[in-house]
C-alpha cells in the first residue's frame, strides 16, 4: 500500500514516440504516479490547458504543434505548471531557448528514466525546504554541518569526493542514480557540448568501489547497490 497524501501526482507526457511515451508512463505508474500520454502537439496542448497536472514532460519535436510553441503559449496564458523538456536536440541555443521560454528543466535524449524521475521529484519538491542538516539511511548517518559520516556509530573517514558522492546518493535514497547524474552533479561535468566527452565514467566506478569499501564492507548489510547498465541505488533493500 503506497502512501498517498491527498491524491497521486498527475503527470502529462507529451511525446509522439509511442514506445518512449508508453515506457515513461509505465515507469511513472510504477512509482505510484498517474501518467497520461498525449501523442501529438495539439492534443497535448489541449490537455495541458484544460486539465490539471503536477508536471508535464514535453518533447520538443512534435507533429502538429512544436513543443517550444506549446511551452510559450502555456506560459503566456499564465499557466505555471512545471515542465521538463526532453529533446534530441542538445545544441546550447536550443537549451537556452527552452529554459528562456519557461521550461523548468531540460533533458537531452537518450536520457535514463532514473534521471527523468529524479528531475520530476525535484520539481515536485520545489518550494518545500530541503534544508536538512542530517541524512540518515538505516544505521548510516551523514552530518552536513560537521561533515562527519558514521555507520553503526562508528565514524568513517571519507575523502571530499567520497563525501559528496555519498551525500548525493543519500539525498536520492531508494532511487536510482545514473552515471550521467553523478558526472554532472557530483563531478560538475558540463553536459552542454558533449557531457560524455570526458572519461569520467571510469572514475565514477572506481569511486563507488572505494566508497563501498568504507561504507559497506565492514558491515553485514549492504547499502550501496549497483544496477548494471542503469546506475546506483542507496537503500536498505536491494532494488
Amino acid at each position: 500500500m503506497r502512501r498517498r497524501i491527498v491524491r497521486s501526482v498527475r503527470i502529462l507526457i507529451i511525446e509522439d514516440e509511442r514506445k518512449v511515451a508508453d515506457a515513461l508512463a509505465r515507469g511513472f505508474r510504477g512509482e505510484g504516479h498517474d501518467a497520461v500520454v498525449s501523442a501529438s502537439g495539439e492534443d497535448g496542448f489541449f490537455r495541458a490547458t484544460t486539465e490539471m497536472y503536477d508536471v508535464i514532460v514535453l518533447d520538443l519535436n512534435l507533429p502538429g504543434r512544436d513543443g517550444l510553441q506549446i511551452l510559450e503559449t502555456l506560459r503566456a496564458r499564465g499557466n505555471a505548471v512545471p515542465v521538463v523538456v526532453v529533446t534530441a536536440r542538445d545544441a546550447v541555443d536550443d537549451r537556452v531557448r527552452g529554459l528562456d521560454l519557461g521550461a523548468d528543466d531540460y533533458l537531452v535524449k537518450p536520457f535514463s528514466f532514473a534521471e527523468l524521475s529524479a528531475r520530476v521529484r525535484a520539481l515536485l519538491r520545489r518550494g518545500r525546504s530541503d534544508q536538512v542538516l542530517r541524512l540518515c539511511v538505516g544505521d548510516l548517518e551523514l552530518d552536513l554541518v560537521t561533515r562527519r559520516v558514521s555507520r553503526a556509530r562508528r565514524p568513517l573517514t571519507l575523502t571530499a569526493r567520497e563525501f559528496e558522492l555519498l551525500e548525493y546518493l543519500m539525498r536520492h535514497t531508494g532511487h536510482v542514480v545514473s552515471r550521467a547524474m553523478l558526472a554532472r552533479d557530483v563531478w560538475g561535468e558540463s553536459e552542454v557540448g558533449g557531457g560524455r566527452a570526458t572519461p569520467i565514467d571510469n572514475v565514477i566506478d572506481v569511486q563507488i568501489a572505494r566508497l563501498r569499501k568504507k561504507v559497506d564492507e565492514p558491515f553485514a548489510r549492504r547499502l550501496v547497490h549497483t544496477l548494471r547498465g542503469v546506475g546506483f541505488v542507496l537503500g536498505e533493500n536491494a532494488p
Binding site: 515506457a23 515513461l24 509505465r26 537518450p110 528514466f113 532514473a114
Partner: peptide
C-alpha cells in the same frame, strides 16, 4: 537518439 531513448526507457522500466 530517439530509438536509443525508447530502448533505454523500455529496458529500464522493465527492469524496475
Amino acid at each position: 537518439r530517439t530509438p536509443l531513448t525508447a530502448m533505454r526507457t523500455v529496458a529500464e522500466v522493465e527492469l524496475r
